[in-house]
C-alpha cells in the first residue's frame, strides 16, 4: 500500500512543529509480573534524533519493540504515521537495528542489503546504502568475517536501506571502540539531516548528548525527565557532597534540591543543585558533621545518581 503511505507523508500537520512520525501514548507493558514500561509517552518528529537514555532494564528496548510492532502494549497506544505499527503501510516506513547475537554468516554484506531492500517499495540504490554506511570496501565479504564495528555498520545499512521515515536504533554503538562509535554518530546525524525521525537507545549520556535533539530519560519503566541535552545536563549536573553525618540518607533525600543521597563506607554521598542550602540545613541539624568535601559532579556521575534508585 505505498500510495497510502504517501498520502500520510504529505498530509499537512496543521502546526509549525515538524510532522509527527511516531508516538507512544501512555503506554504500559508488563512481562509476567514485572512492569517494563509504565505510562510512558513519547513523540518523534521528522528530522529529529531522540535518545532514549537509561540503565540496563529501564525499558528502552521494550519501547523500541513497541514502535516496531514486535510487542503490543497492555494499555495506551502506539502509532507510526498515524497507523498501528503492525500494519503493512506503517511497516514499510520503519527501519530497525536491533541487538542481534549473531547474523547468518553465509551471505555477503551486499547480498543481505539487497535482500532487505526487496522488502521496501522504494529502497535506496545499493551503492548509496553501501556508501552511507561506509561498507563499499567490504561489500563482498560474508557477514561471518566482519569485525564488530563492520557488523554494526552492516546492520545499520539494513535499517536504512528502505529509505524509511522512522529509524529505530537499539544500542547501535554497544561494544564498539571510540573510532567506530564516532562513525555511527556521523551516520545518525546524516539520517536526521535527510529528514528521518530517529529513535536511539543508549546508556551513555555522552552519546545522547552528542547526537540527540531531545533526550528522554527513563528508569524502571518510567519517564524520569525529558528535554534538550542542555536542559537535561542542567537538571542533572550539580555538586557532589561527601561527609560523615548522623543524618540518615532518607532524611537527606527529603531536602529540597537533592537528587540523591547514598550511604557509603567513606560517608554519605549527596548530589544536589543547591549545595549551599543543603549544607546550611545539614550543619544546623548535625553540628558533629565532619570530613566535608564538596566537588563538581561529572555528568555521568550525576546521571547515574538519577537513574539508580
Amino acid at each position: 500500500m505505498p500510495a497510502i503511505a504517501d498520502a500520510a507523508r504529505i498530509e499537512p500537520t496543521g502546526s509549525h512543529a515538524p510532522e509527527l512520525i511516531a508516538s507512544l501514548h501512555a503506554v504500559s507493558k508488563r512481562y509476567g509480573g514485572r512492569t517494563a514500561l509504565d505510562g510512558v509517552s513519547l513523540e518523534l518528529r521528522r528530522g529529529e534524533v531522540v535518545a532514549l537514555l537509561g540503565p540496563n532494564g529501564a525499558g528502552k528496548t521494550t519501547a523500541v519493540k513497541l514502535l516496531l510492532g514486535l510487542l503490543s502494549p497492555a494499555s495506551g497506544s502506539v502509532r507510526v504515521l498515524g497507523r498501528d505499527p503492525r500494519s503493512s503501510a506503517a511497516r514499510v516506513a520503519i527501519g530497525a537495528m536491533l541487538q542481534v547475537a549473531r547474523v547468518p554468516d553465509m551471505l555477503t554484506v551486499r547480498e543481505q542489503i539487497e535482500l532487505f531492500r526487496s522488502y521496501y517499495p522504494r529502497p535506496l540504490p545499493t551503492p548509496e546504502v553501501l556508501r552511507l554506511a561506509g561498507l563499499s570496501a567490504i561489500e563482498h565479504q560474508r557477514f561471518g568475517t566482519l569485525s564488530g564495528g563492520q557488523r554494526q555498520r552492516a546492520l545499520f545499512a539494513l535499517a536504512v536501506c528502505g529509505d524509511p521515515d522512522l529509524v529505530c536504533l537499539d544500542e547501535p554503538t554497544v561494544g564498539l571502540d571510540i573510532h567506530s562509535r564516532r562513525q555511527v554518530w556521523e551516520q545518525v546525524s546524516t539520517l536526521a539531516a535527510a529528514g528521518k525521525a530517529v529513535l536511539l537507545t543508549t546508556h551513555y549520556l555522552e552519546e545522547a548528548d552528542a547526537l540527540a535533539h531531545r533526550i528522554v530519560l527513563i528508569n524502571q519503566g518510567r519517564l524520569v525527565r525529558e528535554g534538550t541535552p542542555a536542559q537535561i545536563k542542567q537538571g542533572v549536573a550539580g555538586r557532589r557532597i561527601r561527609c560523615r553525618t548522623r543524618l540518615a540518607p532518607d532524611a537527606l533525600r527529603a531536602l529540597p534540591a537533592v537528587t540523591s543521597a547514598e550511604a557509603s563506607e567513606a560517608g554519605v554521598v549527596i548530589f544536589t543543585q543547591d549545595p549551599e542550602a543543603v549544607l546550611r540545613r545539614m550543619l544546623t541539624e548535625d553540628p558533629g558533621l565532619s570530613d566535608l568535601e564538596v566537588t563538581t559532579a561529572s555528568l555521568d556521575e550525576a546521571f547515574l545518581a538519577l537513574t539508580t534508585a
Binding site: 542481534v100 539494513l158 528502505g162
Partner: peptide
C-alpha cells in the same frame, strides 16, 4: 537458530512479507 540469535526478530521488524 535464527530465532535464538535474534535474527528472526530483526526480520520480523522489517516489512518482509
Amino acid at each position: 537458530m535464527e530465532r535464538a540469535q535474534g535474527w528472526l526478530e530483526l526480520k520480523w521488524a522489517s516489512p518482509m512479507p
